[in-house]
């Protein structure tokens, strides 16, 4: 508080002595100093809802994960980290399912995240260069309006092995949903179809921000569309790409509904994801403790991956 008062005294003195220009300088100087009060005032609404609706359930979740907790019979006692070690060591049904589904999920993330960046970015650049922009924007964004239940069902029937429209239309006999790796391809396809709109809009918004003069100058120098994209636009999309990649990583790790509807985790358990396992453990087997522990382990995996994504994105300037 003392420093604050000193600052006020100093500034009032300064204002009296100097003119308008100096006053501006002082304002700026103050501006560039710490603004704890103002900042937390701005943050108050967010922090309030954050504490109420994220921190409270989260702390409770951690509490549950350290207990032998069942939805039906309640708290069965504090067991330290046994829920975590059971999962990590792959003990029991859910222990082995945890690892199977975790690897499945990681595999899905590895194939889907690059595509979920590449395809929307390419399409966004295409739309940026094409006429009829509103039409394309609508076409590439509208699948986002469908719920996972709706589009999952639609895709599962389009991709039916016998009598499905895709096989019928192209005269194929591919086991889209019951063969491997087709099952993953199908889920990936449906996921890209349905969730691409978000990434497309963000990448498109970012591309429209690239200064036109720079692009035109490059074109004058004879740079082709691809070169212009790679050399000028792409570096300027870094921040938007971070948003798209990080959020798609998180979304892909949480893959659930379309997978459940399209393959129900099959064939066998080949497309069972970690969210599906956690859900089963929590609500079908009434093991809230183990399920919450699995969810936090997933959060840790996600955190590590996101950390590296941030690091790489910072280095790749």
């Amino acid at each position: 508080m003392a420093t604050e008062q000193q600052l006020v005294v100093q500034t009032t003195g300064a204002i009296a002595a100097e003119g308008l220009a100096e006053r501006k300088k002082v304002r700026l100087r103050r501006h560039h100093e710490l603004q704890n009060g103002t900042a937390y005032l701005f943050l108050t609404p967010y922090l309030a809802v954050f504490v109420l609706f994220v921190v409270v359930p989260l702390v409770f979740g951690i509490y549950v994960s350290l207990h032998n907790w069942s939805e039906t019979t309640g708290n069965g006692g504090f067991i330290w980290f046994r829920n975590y070690t059971t999962l990590i060591l792959g003990r029991g049904y859910y222990g082995s399912e945890f690892w199977t589904s975790m690897w499945n999920t990681i595999f899905f993330v590895i194939i889907s995240v690059p595509l979920l960046w590449l395809i929307p970015t390419a399409l966004a650049y295409g739309v940026y260069r094409a006429p009829l922009k509103p039409l394309w924007r609508f076409l590439f964004f509208y699948p986002s309006v469908f719920s996972a239940t709706a589009f999952g069902s639609a895709w599962s029937l389009l991709l039916a092995t016998n009598g499905g429209s895709v096989n019928n239309l192209f005269g194929l006999n591919i086991q889209w949903l019951t063969g491997m790796p087709q099952a993953w391809i199908s889920i990936d396809l449906a996921t890209i179809w349905a969730t691409m709109g978000f990434s497309f809009i963000i990448m498109y918004a970012a591309i429209t921000q690239v200064p036109r003069p720079t692009l035109e100058a490059a074109e004058m120098d004879g740079a082709g569309a691809y070169e212009r994209f790679r050399l000028i636009i792409l570096p300027l999309l870094r921040r938007a790409s971070v948003v798209v990649v990080v959020l798609n990583t998180i979304a892909s790790f949480n893959l659930f509904a379309q997978d459940q509807i399209m393959t129900n985790g099959g064939p066998g358990t080949a497309t069972t994801t970690i969210s599906m396992t956690i859900y089963q453990q929590a609500f079908d087997s009434f093991n809230a403790g183990g399920a919450t522990a699995a969810a936090f382990l997933l959060a840790i995996v996600l955190g590590v991956i996101a950390f590296f994504q941030f690091r790489i994105s910072r280095k790749a300037v």
């Binding site: 599962s156 092995t161 016998n162 009598g163 086991q175 949903l177 063969g179 393959t263």
Partner: peptide, 18 residues
């Protein structure tokens, strides 16, 4: 019977009359 029908295909394809 064909190999690898997708989930729920038995019911839906039977409903199609094929």
């Amino acid at each position: 019977a064909p190999a690898g029908p997708s989930p729920n295909e038995d019911l839906n394809d039977f409903g199609k009359g094929i």
